[in-house]
Lab assay of single mutants.
Amino acid sequence: SIKEIEKEEIIKVLKEVNFNKKLASEILGIPLRTLYKRLKEYGI
């Protein structure tokens, strides 16, 4: 599903940037606030 793909992509990017959420949100092209929402939604 799209949610699974998105979750995997978020985890992959977070690992690449050593869990720097600000940098991860910039790489993913989403606002930091949205990233936090996704992390909560996906239980990351």
Rank of each mutant, 00 (worst) to 15 (best):
E9Q: 15
E8M: 14
Y36N: 14
Y42E: 05
E41T: 04
F19C: 09
I30Y: 04
P31W: 05
R38A: 14
K37I: 10
R33L: 14
I5Y: 12
R38T: 10
K7H: 08
E26W: 08
K22V: 11
I11H: 04
S1E: 13
K22F: 10
N20G: 02
E8I: 11
L28M: 05
L23N: 04
I5N: 13
L23W: 07
Y42F: 12
P31K: 08
S25W: 01
I44R: 05
L23T: 06
K21N: 08
K15D: 04
V13I: 11
P31Q: 07
Y42Q: 03
K21L: 15
P31D: 15
V13Q: 02
L28H: 01
T34C: 09
I2K: 13
I27V: 08
L32P: 04
T34N: 07
Y42M: 14
G43Q: 09
L39P: 00
P31E: 09
I30Q: 01
G43P: 03
S1H: 13
F19K: 02
G43W: 06
L32W: 04
K21A: 15
T34I: 13
L28T: 02
I27R: 11
P31T: 15
L28N: 00
P31Y: 03
E4W: 07
G43I: 05
L14E: 00
P31R: 06
E26Q: 14
Y36R: 13
A24E: 00
E9I: 14
K22C: 08
N18W: 07
S1T: 13
E4G: 09
K40Q: 12
K21E: 07
S25R: 02
K21G: 08
T34E: 15
N18I: 03
I11C: 09
Y36W: 08
R38K: 15
N18F: 09
A24G: 02
I5D: 10
N18D: 08
N18A: 08
P31L: 06
L23D: 04
L14P: 00
K3I: 12
V17T: 11
E26V: 13
L28E: 00
T34Y: 08
Y36H: 11
E9V: 12
E16V: 07
L39F: 03
F19W: 15
E26P: 02
Y36Q: 14
L39Q: 01
I5L: 14
A24I: 02
R38N: 06
E6W: 08
T34P: 02
K3Q: 12
E16W: 08
I44A: 05
Y42L: 15
K15E: 08
T34S: 08
K7L: 14
I10P: 00
E4H: 11
K7P: 06
K7Q: 07
